[in-house]
Design a protein around this nucleic acid. Sequence first.
RNA 1: CGGGAUGUAGCGCAGCUUGGUAGCGCACCUCACUUGGGAUGAGGGGGUCGCAGGUUCGAAUCCUGUCAUCCCGACCA
Length: 578
Amino acid sequence: MKMSKMFVQTLRETPADAEVVSHQLLIRAGYIRMLTSGIYSYLPLMFRVFKKVENIVRDEMDKSGAQELLMPILQPKEVWEESGRWEAYGKELMRLKDRHDREMALGPTHEEIITLLAKNQISSYKQLPINLYQVQSKFRDERRPRFGLLRGREFIMKDAYSFDVDEEGLDKAYNVMAQAYEKIFIRCGLDTKMVRSDSGAIGGDVSHEYMVLTETDCGENDVVFCVECDYAGNTNRAESILPKCKTDGEFKESNIVDTPNVKSIEELTKFFNIEPSAICKSLVYIVDKKIVVALIRGDLTIEETKLKNFIDGNEIRIATDEEIKELMEKSNLTAEAGFIGPKGIKAQVIADESVKGLKNFVVGVNQNDKHLAGANWGVDLDLPKSVADIRLAQRDELCIKCNAKLDITRGIEVGNIFKLGTKYSAKMNAKFTDEKGGEKPYIMGCYGIGISRTAAAAIEKYHDKDGIKWPMSIAPYHVIVVPVNVQDEQQWAVANELYDQLKQQNIEAVLDDREYRAGVKFKDADLIGFPVRITVGKTIKEGDVEVKVRMSGEQIKISKDEAVKHVVNIINSELEKS
RNA sequence: CGGGAUGUAGCGCAGCUUGGUAGCGCACCUCACUUGGGAUGAGGGGGUCGCAGGUUCGAAUCCUGUCAUCCCGACCA
């Protein structure tokens, strides 16, 4: 490919509305252009990267025994009503009408379609197990698309669906996918963590996400992981060993104490001269319009998703002062936030496990400007019936698996695997005949990889101030040959010669034949992220060219006759790693 | 959906307060000069100032509405 003919326009300035690095670089380096919010054209460089990722995905999927197919993007309402998701998927489902006013959806995922297909095609256990996948554009009408390719409304995804006769078969299929995923991401040059996760809208029992851990802040969820073993989880699910109480309270007897305007944990610790861990903190939440009081030790934090899940709620938020006032009136009590406690309150009370061990502690008693000090469960008040882990796991707490320290990083979810069970097959009456002649619903699993998101995640992971540093396996091209001065006959001739030789060796090469100054061409090469650059400049008079590796920054001078061999070696050894 | 901000050339922005011929930098085209890290000079093309109303002799500028985009939050995965 000649650079002068390539459909690419690099920008010197960062577009004002691109927030995260991958978005900025993809625009600046000429990979994508936005059509409208969350929807992008993928220009030739981007397309090549997608093909690379897709082909790795295809290769591993095929090796795992899965078969590729392609299902419709445009889907009639009826199929979605069958699964109940026409309602349940909510506004995120991109909907439209055809000329007959028939309601349709653009597929955000394909459980319904594949289940319907299986229902009509698979009638015997002899046809099972089977795993079918496709690579395709998906549509999700995100409330707030952002971060470029990391959260678009249209994006490219690989989605696979497994069908088995029983749970055992599903477990097997699930593990096969887990292994394939591991290989896929390694081949893409990405370190991922397999993280236990919530199943969310897709549903099912067991699910894992594959997260690329990044230092950059791209708004994705925090991941808690163990520094020693392989334990990892989303913050909304991760557990940790309960940190020990520093000291119990040292009150001689329990007493209701006047605590005028002493509300926060910090104020209480000063007032009583105690550790935060000797306080029982009470927080008021609104879960699906109902009031819920959550208790936790003063030095710890509530994880709202855990609380929400424990009581099987959908929506959770902290109560406003007015809502607290209302609660108090209903309970015939008078207290503002800061003086709330479990005793005598007319609301569901959930205690975190951490409060169980509290002794001689301080707690609100639902009277303004008063706290109960030296309280003990069973003596001064009862431990609530509902005790659960609703605590946010924090950095430096200890791993439940191996007792080592936990750490927290930002992560980008690039893949996920779900055990669906019969969630869709049962609802859609999709059954097969088993060995004994009985009818059974398929046991299903589904497995997604965000192709476009994986590419963006690679950039979040591998970039510097000058641009992208693609891993060799997913770079749009392997090498760029840059003649410093195209008017210098010798430089021009050698550059062309090297370029031709590289192509003969099946190396994906670009020749920067543009009549620009060297600086411009170097800047573009770095920005676009060619893994290897061969510079043909003045040193060609001594027969030498320069080879620079983008990822490592390594740079050597080498005879032009050995350059191609050297570069082919670099490229192949990188590709072999994947 | 709540809060905030912005829409002027492909990109980044000024002009708006105080209405009077639409500007600058980058990019693009031509010529000269230059060629190892985003040179320089000269010339040139490109805009219904987001859209629709209104006020006015006259609107990018003032008013009303509307649409779009971005940020924070909520939501979702």
